[in-house]
């Protein structure tokens, strides 16, 4: 994102008026290039965001005119709703669970797979990455079938005499949340592994070599060389994982649909249920109420990224600014 100041300085020998028209022409092109994105952004992002705030002040079923302004009543009701707080709690469990399991597990795997001498790395990498490319909603359906009372997993445990009675994985409120976390982590682990590998590969080999010369073993190298150097990328990976955990809709909708008794209802499923289903909402469809919950979910996301961002990025942003010019940019592929 370094600007092109140098360009203008270099070309002072040229005719200045010519240069000015050239720059003007370029600037016009810049606006033309930006126009599609800006238009699309205002129509399809900014407008819906604003409207979702507007809806939240109305009692509205989504059909018919928006005419029943109720001020902050939706927010009041939400903040006193046990079901809403429960969904926030489930979301937090899910976010933390998938981050600890998914990011932590991925780090271990990445360290193993980063070993230069390990054979068939590509094969393992592919296997562990595979769930990432699958459609979450469909995975939810398949997993639901595997973890059913008479599903494959229980039958396996019974066959091996590990248990004598099938375990209700998806209908026990605690187990169901655990299954959601495990499956969510399984689904996302591959992508985190690749992120970690990218980080590990950016560590220069000389550092390992000098560590070896110093007589450091595997664990010492890991502790004193690898992990400290991974810190900046760790912040990014954890943040990405936290944010993706907030949108657990696909998996939860198809795996447990929030049941039993809303015990596994996450915030985004709560919103969907109120917005689109009277059966699973409060007996009425309430777009305004759902929108208010959406605004709170947005604030929740905002707070998480801010708190986390402030905690981990604070120092690095300053560092990054200094490094930018030296560090020739992107090293993709």
């Amino acid at each position: 994102m370094a600007n092109n100041l140098e360009l203008s300085q270099k070309s002072t020998s040229k005719d200045t008026s010519n240069l000015k028209t050239l720059q003007k022409r370029k600037a016009i092109w810049a606006y033309i290039f930006l126009a599609p994105q800006i238009i699309v952004f205002f129509i399809f992002s900014a407008y819906p965001i604003v409207m979702s705030y507007v809806y939240s002040f109305y009692e509205w079923s989504g059909i018919g005119p928006l005419n029943d302004f109720i001020g902050l009543a939706n927010y009041q009701q939400l903040l006193t709703s046990e079901r809403f707080w429960n969904s926030a709690l489930v979301s937090i469990y899910y976010i933390l669970g998938t981050t600890v399991l998914g990011v932590g597990g991925a780090l271990i795997l990445a360290i193993i797979l980063n070993d230069q001498k390990l054979k068939s790395k590509g094969f393992y990498r592919a296997i562990y990455f595979l769930p990432v490319v699958t459609t979450t909603a469909i995975v939810g359906i398949i997993i639901g079938s595997i973890f059913g009372i008479n599903g494959f997993f229980n039958q396996l445990l019974v066959d091996f005499n590990i248990i004598d009675k099938p375990i209700p994985w998806l209908t026990d409120p605690v187990l169901a949340v655990i299954i959601l976390i495990v499956i969510g982590s399984w689904k996302g682990l591959g992508i985190n592994m690749v992120y970690w590998l990218a980080g590990l590969q950016s560590i220069p080999n000389e550092l390992y070599e000098s560590a070896q010369l110093d007589g450091a073993g595997f664990w010492a190298t890991l502790r004193h060389v690898t992990l400290p150097l991974l810190k900046p990328i760790a912040a990014v990976i954890i943040l990405l994982s936290l944010v993706s955990g907030i949108n657990a809709f696909d998996l939860v909708k198809t795996l447990t649909n929030g049941g039993p008794n809303f015990a596994t209802e996450t915030m985004d499923l709560f919103i969907y249920n109120y917005a689109f289903s009277s059966q699973l909402g409060g007996g009425q469809v309430r777009m305004g109420y759902a929108s208010a919950a959406g605004v709170l979910l947005g604030l929740f996301t905002f707070v998480i990224s801010m708190v986390f961002g402030a905690a981990s990025f604070g120092k690095q942003i300053i560092k990054l600014k200094g490094n930018k010019k030296k560090k020739g940019g992107v090293k993709a592929l």
Binding site: S81, D172, P260, G282, G283, Q284
Partner: peptide, 25 residues
């Protein structure tokens, strides 16, 4: 009736009963 139902958190006791049977409540 619609206004009354809008004030409710749950439309009935069905989910509570399911929650009770599954050990959630």
């Amino acid at each position: 009736n619609r206004a009354y139902r809008n004030k409710l958190e749950v439309g009935g006791i069905g989910d509570a009963v399911v929650g009770y049977i599954t050990g959630n409540i």
